[in-house]
Computed example of a mutant assay.
Amino acid sequence: MTILDVKNLKKIYTTRFGGNQVQALSNVSFSVEEGEYVAIMGESGSGKTTLLNILAALDKPTSGEVFLNGQNIVQIREKEISAFRRDNLGFVFQDFNLLDTFSIQDNIFLPLVLAGKQYKEMAKRLKPIAAKLGIGDILKKYPYEVSGGQKQRTAVARALITSPQLILADEPTGALDSNAADGLLRLFGEINEEGQTILMVTHSTKAASHAKRVLFIKDGEVFHQIYKANMSDEEMFAKISDTLTVLQTGGGNRG
Rank of each mutant, 00 (worst) to 15 (best):
P128R: 12
E80A: 15
N72I: 07
R125V: 03
M231F: 07
S63H: 07
S44D: 05
S82K: 08
A83W: 05
K7D: 06
F237I: 03
L176G: 07
F216I: 03
T15Y: 13
L168W: 04
V113G: 00
E33S: 15
V22L: 15
G174I: 02
R16F: 08
L110F: 10
R16H: 10
I217V: 14
R158N: 02
I108S: 09
L160S: 02
K11T: 00
M236Q: 11
F102V: 03
L176V: 08
K79G: 09
E193N: 13
P164Y: 09
F91W: 07
Q152C: 03
M231W: 05
L184Y: 04
Q75K: 15
Q225N: 12
G251I: 04
T62I: 02
L185S: 01
P143E: 03
D87N: 15
A181P: 08
D242F: 07
S204D: 09
K11P: 05
G116F: 01
L9S: 03
D100N: 15
V214P: 01
A208M: 08
F93H: 05
F237A: 06
D87P: 04
K127F: 07
T197Y: 13
E145M: 14
L89G: 12
K239C: 10
G64A: 00
E234I: 06
E235N: 14
E121F: 03
V246Y: 11
F17D: 12
T162A: 11
P128L: 10
F30A: 06
E234Q: 14
T173S: 14
I76N: 11
K124P: 00
L168H: 04
I73Q: 06
G252Q: 12
R85L: 07
T205G: 06
A211Q: 11
R85D: 08
G136C: 05
R16G: 13
I54A: 00
G19M: 10
N8E: 09
E80M: 09
E193K: 15
G183M: 02
L139R: 09
A131N: 10
F96E: 06
G220A: 00
D233V: 10
S178A: 08
D59V: 01
L176R: 02
S26L: 05
N8M: 06
I3S: 15
T205L: 13
I3T: 14
K10P: 06
Y142N: 11
A155D: 06
D137K: 15
F84Y: 15
D170V: 07
L187R: 03
S178T: 10
Q75I: 04
M41E: 04
Q196E: 02
K228P: 06
K11Q: 00
D182Y: 11
A180D: 11
L110D: 00
Q248R: 15
